[in-house]
């Protein structure tokens, strides 16, 4: 069963652009990405869109649909009212390349700044032993498909380009948390690094990132808050502070 639906899609590049109206066929069970593909095949062959798997696994087709950051491949047309216009715009936090495609290199640059996994020097490959219960916390964060919807929605950078320099964003906070909670990672300063170099302190836990995560990772509760709490433990606990001073003086 197919119907004609109204779509408005942002077309343009870094010099500017505008919403363009399209009328397009929509069939039962389709997702927004199907409709975008039909537009490409019929009315707008050069409509730029980034996508890969169309199964919610690669995190490429992120966009803002009726103002909400979502994956186009996982947004079914049935969630909209039959006469509702569907507006698709590029992620707002990142510079536009063309149409729905944005320059997400900021995320890769921030990833390159996080110290890598530091394996235990005394264990050879094949000798790693970890309990399921101990790897599960990090495994939750490794579900991340790097769609960057959390990075896009975070208000610290969404309309504050200037903060990008000092703020790594939720995706990279859970990367830090994942390494911090890795049973065999030997670096002990991941929380301090997150505070000092990643701008963890800018986050005021409004949980917008958690809300948009298509993998339902509890970014704030399970990742950011534990990192913040333990930073607080170490940095502001008077006893720890005193201990560190005494220890330092003695050495």
């Amino acid at each position: 069963m197919s119907t004609m639906r109204d779509f408005r899609i942002w077309r343009g590049d870094e010099t500017g652009g505008a919403l363009v109206d399209y009328q397009v066929e929509v069939n039962e069970g389709e997702v927004v990405l199907d409709v975008i593909h039909r537009l490409q095949a019929t009315q707008a062959p050069d409509l730029a869109v980034r996508w890969n798997c169309k199964a919610g696994k690669c995190g490429s087709c992120s966009a803002e649909i009726n103002g909400k950051p979502r994956l186009m491949c996982m947004t079914r047309m049935s969630v909209f009212a039959p006469d509702e216009t569907v507006t698709v715009t590029p992620l707002r936090t990142f510079p536009v390349i063309r149409d729905l495609v944005t320059d997400v290199s900021y995320n890769y640059e921030k990833a390159r700044q996080i110290p890598a996994f530091a394996p235990p020097p005394d264990l050879r490959p094949g000798e790693y032993r970890m309990m399921q219960v101990d790897v599960e916390r990090s495994q939750e964060f490794r579900k991340c498909i790097e769609c960057f919807l959390c990075q896009n929605t975070c208000h610290v950078t969404r309309d504050h380009e200037e903060n990008k320099r000092v703020f790594a964003g939720p995706r990279l906070f859970i990367r830090a948390a994942e390494l911090d909670m890795h049973p065999l990672d030997t670096r002990k300063d991941r929380k301090e690094f997150a505070q000092a170099e990643q701008g963890l302190g800018y986050c005021n836990i409004t949980k917008c990132c958690t809300e948009v995560c298509p993998e339902h990772i509890k970014i704030t509760d399970n990742g950011i808050i534990p990192m913040k709490e333990r930073v607080v433990d170490r940095r502001y606990d008077p006893l720890v502070w005193l201990g560190s001073k005494i220890f330092r003086r003695r050495s």
Binding site: P125, M131, Q132
Partner: peptide
């Protein structure tokens, strides 16, 4: 194949585990 999988753990991979802590 086994060496290639074990090597991934040294890169930071976290596979599901057996009760004795090996790769399931």
């Amino acid at each position: 194949a086994p060496d290639r999988i074990w090597e991934l753990e040294t890169y930071g991979a976290l596979f599901d585990r057996t009760p004795d802590g090996k790769i399931s």
